[in-house]
Amino acid sequence: MTKQFLLDGQPVPFEDGQTVLEAARAAGHYIPSLCWHKDFPPHGSCKLCVVKAAGRHVSACATPAKEGWEVESNTPEINGERRGLLQMLLVEGNHFCPSCEKSGDCELQALGYEYEVLTPRFRHFFPDRPVDASHPDVLLDFNRCIFCELCVRASRDIDGKSVFALTGRGIDKHLVVNAESGRLADTDFAKTDRAANICPVGVILHKRVGFAVPIGERTFDLATISEKTLKEGSS
């Protein structure tokens, strides 16, 4: 007999080693995430996949499923906390969607829609991190970084280049590139790198292709992030 746990009262089957998030999505239940990616081990930094398992808050992406667990995810309490986390990300960076090339394809924005975030609520930090336009093909706007480290991991583990790393600590944490000059142009970064094509928000942008897709036809104009995620999961 397959093992299962209950997600918001629905039975979800799982195999040993599967996380709560993986099992839930495979069974057609959406649990949100920003830093999780199927090609990488769980990271657990964005905390949007927070669920309540057997009464305790855990990250669904990093928690192995357990037989008989009762997991709460799509509840007013948990969704409220997810909204709070999204609001924290929205005030921490500069997220001016109307002028961002990633608008319509941005996962942070799409999650804002999914969880009906109407206001950033808190005081804005308005960070001032200089943009790096040195590279011929790619622009970096660090002010939109959500610290998911997908570019760091992709460049290190897939491209074998380690173009990106995080430095600083706490609220001063920031992304740096692998060059003494601090300029992307002085690294071996290429627009075909996996790291160049994995940013869930608008930090790593390809030059000369912005705003090419008309409004109405962009990724999240066509489907909500939950619809898109579940569709991809089942294909």
Partner: peptide
């Protein structure tokens, strides 16, 4: 806590700074 947060996760990185504010 705001000074010592490692900044890895969203709630602690942003939350301790908001709380300090």
């Amino acid at each position: 806590f705001a000074h010592e947060s490692c900044g890895f996760c969203t709630p602690c990185r942003v939350g301790t700074s908001l709380l300090k504010g």
